[in-house]
Design a protein around this nucleic acid. Structure first.
Lengths: 188, 188
DNA sequence: GGCCGAATATGATATATGTCATGAAAACAG
DNA sequence: CTGTTTTCATGACATATATCATATTCGGCC
């Protein structure tokens, strides 16, 4: 059985019909590192479930990449702004590692919501989960000093350091890579 | 009929039973300016609909108030982190103006979701809407210069300037009130 | 309507962090 | 392997913005 069906079942047991409809709408896909799932100007048409791999969301600001978030195996990945509004994205979604993903289109998802009202329960719970994570990241950004923002990331999302390059983390923390390098040196 | 029943109906027509259940779970309430809906340490037990008024979400950081957002008539107001996780809040929700609010408890809301599956559709849509707004604010925060963050707020949320004190806006933009004052002076 | 505390404006100075430059180390490709 | 590119580290310097101080204006309230 598909890994993400298993995952959805842990949120709420799926009826046979719903399980079948989900399987019919999705397919696993193996993608190489550096593959780009979405780029500015495109409308986000699909939501991705990561069975394995690592994805980064980022925007270009004055020619610089600003990383907004990192998602790993077991996570759902979308551009929130573009997918929910179905307007052109301003962000990139890029694989940092090779990945196995399952994806479903916006239209197919709306059909599932319509045909299986109980699926709205799952959708709602998942959106709540990622909304909470997003708010937590936003709250971190509001710390004024670089050292504080770094400390909060270490405290709340320590695993990110295991696989993400430091210059990506620096941009995520709103500081220059040099500043992060010096911070880490001083703290060790 | 209650103003927010009217509002919910525009999202999705409500059945008579659901309408009745919602009305039975909520009650309008008139609150004075400066009333605090939630403070750090408390678990957010209720979600509020603002019929009139203005609410600010903020946290204390090193003795300073950092305003996260402002909500006005027609908006739903909660502490995302505390309400969705039912953990103690780290933020304040405070009325900046007298308000008429309708509120419902976490438990009553879960009951509605359970008893009226179609209500999950409305809940999902509402959460999506505020998630999008939250992401937009977070994206603004990632601009590096004070002038840029100010320009984005003017572009995307110009109405906030009509009713919110500038020092609150300054903290929302991650800058000292003096910096905002100078910025505005230079631009006019 | 006039008083008083709060909000905003403006100037002088301090400082965290960005920028630019260079070198070392690590990751990667052929 | 070995060369090449990318990443990270470290130093010197520049600068945006915070901080502190004071003046001015605004707005709520008796």
């Amino acid at each position: 059985m598909s890994s993400f069906i298993t995952f959805l079942n842990t949120l709420q047991p799926l009826s046979a019909g719903l399980t079948e409809a989900i399987l019919a709408s999705t397919m696993p896909e193996k993608l190489p590192a550096h593959h780009v799932l979405l780029r500015p100007g495109q409308v986000a048409r699909r939501v991705y479930f990561l069975e394995t791999g690592l994805v980064r969301g980022y925007t270009l600001l004055h020619g610089r990449e600003i990383s907004s978030w990192f998602m790993q195996a077991g996570d759902f990945v979308i551009s929130i702004l573009s997918f929910f509004t179905q307007q052109p994205s301003e962000e990139y979604l890029e694989l940092l590692e090779p990945a196995v993903v399952h994806s479903i289109s916006y239209d197919q998802l709306q059909r599932l919501y319509h045909d299986f009202p109980e699926f709205n329960f799952i959708g709602r719970r998942l959106i709540e989960k990622y909304y909470v994570l997003s708010e937590q990241r936003a709250q971190h950004l509001r710390s004024r000093t670089a050292a504080e923002r770094y400390a909060l990331l270490v405290r709340d999302f320590p695993t990110v350091f295991q696989r993400v390059a430091l210059h990506h983390i620096a941009s995520h923390l709103g500081m220059a890579p040099e500043t992060l390098s010096r911070l880490r040196n001083k703290l060790s």
